[in-house]
Design a protein around this nucleic acid. Structure first.
Length: 622
RNA sequence: GGGGACGUAGCUCAGUUUGGUUAGAGCGCUGCCCUGUCACGGCAGAGGUCGCGGGUUCGAGCCCCGUCGUCCCCGCCA
């Protein structure tokens, strides 16, 4: 028999009660976490979002309450009325924050019962994702999840506060907007009123925020939902949230300062201190030193070890002498057996036209000097695992060898990237041995700080700058923008737009942290003549440009101030600070890798009637 | 679109190597007992389309083919 709540009002949250509350008359409400029935004495652990408190139901004190206590089961929703009392010295539970007290109930109301859940929020073991997502409401009751969303709230609030203080206005932009053929696949929404026409969900508020600058808002931000219809990853969902901002009259440094300030505030609420300014690295240097444009600074980077080998050595080893020869080093891994090394081999992306040497004993037999020099150059200590990655002349790949002065060739980038991928995969695999990630775990779990490798911080932000403006498309033999076409080139490089596109650097920047891309932005083009030059260098006619971005190009002609901005992945920031392995841990209702909402059961087919109203006919591929 | 891992009780998993009687364990669940537990304890019990379909075989959880689902990765993500 269930009880009504009536006029009963909650006075306290379970997890907040302390010894100082002893003697206080309280009403607490929540879920039964566990029940321990001793016959005439029943203990309930009552859980609400603040934590647990023990309720005691004594048959002598409250025969009715005790009777109800016999009936309740885990996850029943109950209200307990009673008095907080200190536990006897031998009954104190030091493992619980509320372990010094308990609530001596005089009344127990059973507000709701429950079907047997497929798992219990009090379970320690991680459930399989399918079950967790289907019964997300139960999953979200788990203290870890409650903590993640409290953290997400606190971070979002800190960012809003920081940006507001820095003079940014939060302005909403449309969710139903116009499809632009650039970038990712759009989600389309059919128009009922306009047969055959579609809105698109925004991939980002990019064009709108630029128009807000033209509109004179000077500093805009938005915690913006974005939609991209692409395949998912652990750090990528179809819909995700960006901290999106744009500012007028900025130097690049002004954007960096704004971001560094709000990041500092956001990380501070998680108890993490970030050092500002964040370090910077050029795109080329990032590729050379880390083999990626989102480096993880917690581990040593790549080392150029070309000088350790003579041309003859490289010939014997069948290494391309014109391509980079780099060493990657994973500290403290110790000696690996042949079998252990071979298990790592599938991790290496051989499609990039690179090869590796991980058998140093064998290398040292044939090339003792080179092997020693490589370890010396890489700064390898005893027990550090070193691998050489180099170009494989035998492996033909579709990549350009064309060397544009001052720029890495595609094949060079491929060798660095193969080394970079291998580095981060091995770093993950041997995390326990090198210990460089433990300091991050300790920081997010707020346990005692562990000693990481010397100088290693738990979170390592870094700005990546000086990206190339264009990439060469081999298939179509033309230059294509590496970024969206409103990204400004450096003023100094503009003269080369048509004569030497390879040398043009984009005035854009990425923020990376611990191997994750956190954000990306740029100083935009604000002048019509520059925009035209860019289109011209991309081979886009005026007519075509207007068809694709018409309204925006119009707006550009009405007094556009110099402006620029950035967007940071809020979900990824929270994921990092929560120490979560996937975005799904910090998004309340995420989708699976196949883009399904297992709880709501979306997507689904819709009725003929709905389709008809939208002028849509479904034609499935047979 | 491609590659890989996984799928056995409500949950976590063992059993699959080498096919062979009635498929097991822990937790949870149900009933009874228990006044100081907090992962309470004790006794008894229920619970299985071994993801699904097909094949091989005297016989399939185990072998083969297909398929579905979850996860990870490549492609993709201006």
């Amino acid at each position: 028999m269930l009880d009504f709540l009536g006029n009963l009002e909650r006075t306290d949250l379970c997890g907040e009660l302390r010894a100082a509350d002893a003697g206080k008359q309280v009403v607490v409400m929540g879920w039964v976490n566990r029940r321990r029935d001793h016959g005439n004495l029943i203990f309930l652990d009552l859980r609400d979002r603040s934590g647990l408190a023990q309720i005691v139901l004594d048959k002598e004190l409250t025969p009715e309450g005790h009777l109800k206590g016999e009936q309740v089961r885990p996850e029943y929703v109950v209200a307990a009325v009673g008095k907080v009392r200190l536990r006897g010295a031998d009954a104190i539970n030091p493992k619980m924050p509320t372990g010094e007290i308990e609530i001596e109930a005089t009344e127990l109301l059973v507000l709701n019962d429950t079907r047997l859940a497929p798992f219990s929020p009090s379970d320690e073991a991680i459930q399989n994702e399918e079950t967790r997502l289907k019964y997300r409401y139960v999953d979200l009751r788990r203290p870890e999840m409650q903590r993640n969303f409290r953290l997400r709230h606190d971070i979002t609030l800190a960012i809003r506060e920081s940006l507001s203080k820095q003079g940014f206005l939060e302005i909403e932009t449309p969710i139903l907007t116009k499809s632009t053929p650039e970038g990712a696949r759009d989600f389309l929404v059919p128009s009922r009123v306009h047969p055959g026409e579609f809105y698109a969900l925004p991939q980002s508020p990019q064009i709108f925020k630029q128009i807000l600058m033209i509109s004179g808002f000077d500093r805009y931000f938005q915690i913006a939902r974005c939609f991209r219809d692409e395949d998912q990853r652990a750090d990528r969902q179809l819909e995700f949230t960006q901290v999106d901002l744009e500012m007028s009259f900025p130097r690049r440094e002004s954007v960096f300062e704004v971001v560094e300030l709000f990041c500092k505030a956001a990380f501070a609420v998680a108890g993490v201190a970030l050092q500002t300014p964040f370090p910077r690295i050029t795109y080329d240097e990032a590729m050379k030193q880390y083999g990626t444009d989102k480096p993880d600074l917690r581990l040593p980077g790549l080392t150029d070890v070309r000088s350790a080998f003579t041309d003859a050595d490289l010939g014997t080893l069948q290494i391309d002498p014109a391509l980079p020869v780099v060493a990657l080093r994973i500290p403290k891994v110790g000696e690996l057996s042949r079998k252990e090394r071979e298990e790592n081999h599938p991790t290496f992306d051989s499609k990039k036209g690179a090869k590796f040497i991980d058998d140093f004993k064998r290398l040292a037999k044939g090339f003792p000097e080179a092997a020693a020099k490589v370890r010396e150059l890489a700064g390898a200590a005893e027990g550090d695992f070193v691998i050489i990655v180099a170009g494989d002349p035998a492996h033909h790949i579709k990549a350009s060898d064309t060397k544009f002065p001052g720029r890495l060739s595609e094949r060079e980038i491929n060798v660095y990237a193969a080394a970079g991928n291998f580095r981060s995969e091995l770093a993950k695999k041997y995390a326990e041995k090198h210990g460089a990630f433990a300091i991050t775990e300790a920081a997010v779990n707020k346990t005692e700080p562990l000693a990481g490798a010397a100088g290693v911080m738990p979170f390592n932000p870094i700005w990546i700058v000086d990206f190339p403006m264009f990439e060469y498309d081999l298939a179509d033999a033309k230059w294509v923008p590496a970024h969206h076409p409103f990204t400004s080139p450096y003023e100094a490089d503009m003269a080369n737009l048509l004569t030497d596109p390879a040398s043009v650097r984009a005035n854009c920047y990425d923020l990376a942290m611990n191997g994750l891309e956190l954000g990306s932005g740029s100083i935009r083009i604000h002048r019509k003549d520059v925009q035209q030059q860019i289109f011209q260098s991309l081979g886009i006619s005026d007519e075509e440009a207007h068809q694709r971005f018409g309204f925006f190009l119009d707006a550009l002609e009405y007094g556009t101030p110099p402006h620029g901005g950035i967007a940071l992945g809020l979900d990824r920031i929270v994921m990092l600070l929560a120490g979560a392995p996937s975005l799904r841990e910090v998004i309340a209702f995420p989708k699976t890798a196949k883009a399904i909402d297992l709880m709501a059961d979306a997507p689904t087919t819709v009725s003929e009637h709905q389709l008809k109203e939208l002028h849509i006919r479904v034609a499935l591929k047979s």
